[in-house]
């Protein structure tokens, strides 16, 4: 068994209006950051996992994302697996 760290990024799907992102974008524009657009807010979750290898670790985390960590109706997820030495 090896130990891995997963970094999980959960974001609203592209078609879904992100009202928090919009509000922050407006605030940035009022601070003269007009060059910044399309602000999207998401969640960042880190996890430790015990698994045989990184492929298995990713499968565990994918299943956790599908079951609990994200809602597939509104959210996408992206996973990075790093070996924990």
């Amino acid at each position: 068994m090896k130990s891995f760290i997963a970094k999980v990024y959960i974001t609203l799907r592209s078609g879904i209006l992100d009202v928090q992102g919009k509000a922050i974008e407006h605030a940035l524009h009022s601070l003269d950051f007009e060059m910044i657009n399309n602000v999207r807010i998401g969640k960042y979750i880190t996890l430790n996992i015990e698994a045989q290898n990184d492929g298995q670790a990713k499968v565990f985390v994918e299943n956790a994302c599908k079951e609990l960590l994200s809602n597939p109706i509104i959210e996408d997820f992206n996973i990075e697996i790093i070996e924990n030495d």
Binding site: I16, L17, V19, I74
Partner: peptide
């Protein structure tokens, strides 16, 4: 699904 109110 139910997401954040559009007014925040």
């Amino acid at each position: 699904a139910l997401i954040r109110n559009n007014s925040l």
